[in-house]
Amino acid sequence: MNTSLVLPVPTTKSVILGRALSGLVILFLVFDGAIKLVPLPVVTETMAALGYPADQGLARLLGAMTLLCTVLYAIPRTSILGAILLTGYLGGAMATHLRAGSPLFTHLLFGLYLGVIAWGGLWLRDPRLRSLIPFKN
Rank of each mutant, 00 (worst) to 15 (best):
M1A: 13
T3Y: 11
L5I: 15
V6L: 13
V6C: 08
T12G: 10
V15F: 05
S22I: 11
L24F: 15
L24W: 13
L27C: 13
F28P: 03
L29Y: 14
V30H: 07
F31T: 14
F31W: 15
G33M: 03
G33C: 06
K36Y: 02
L37E: 07
P39T: 07
V43K: 04
T44W: 04
E45I: 02
A48D: 01
G51R: 08
G51W: 09
Y52L: 07
P53G: 02
A54N: 00
D55V: 05
Q56M: 08
G57A: 05
R60S: 05
L61N: 00
L61M: 13
L61C: 00
L61R: 04
A64C: 02
A64N: 02
A64P: 03
T66A: 09
C69G: 11
L72Q: 04
A74Y: 08
I75Q: 00
I75V: 15
P76I: 12
T78C: 02
T78L: 05
T78K: 03
I80E: 13
I80C: 05
L81G: 06
L81M: 08
G82N: 08
I84V: 15
I84C: 09
L85R: 10
G88M: 06
Y89P: 03
G91S: 14
G91D: 11
G92L: 07
M94V: 14
T96W: 03
L98P: 00
R99M: 10
R99Y: 09
G101I: 11
S102P: 08
S102Q: 12
P103W: 07
T106G: 15
T106Y: 12
H107R: 12
G111Q: 10
G111N: 06
L112C: 08
G115F: 10
G115S: 01
V116Y: 08
I117P: 00
I117N: 02
A118F: 09
A118K: 05
A118S: 14
W119V: 01
W123M: 03
R125H: 00
P127T: 12
R128G: 05
L129D: 05
S131N: 13
S131L: 06
L132I: 05
I133G: 10
P134V: 03
N137R: 15
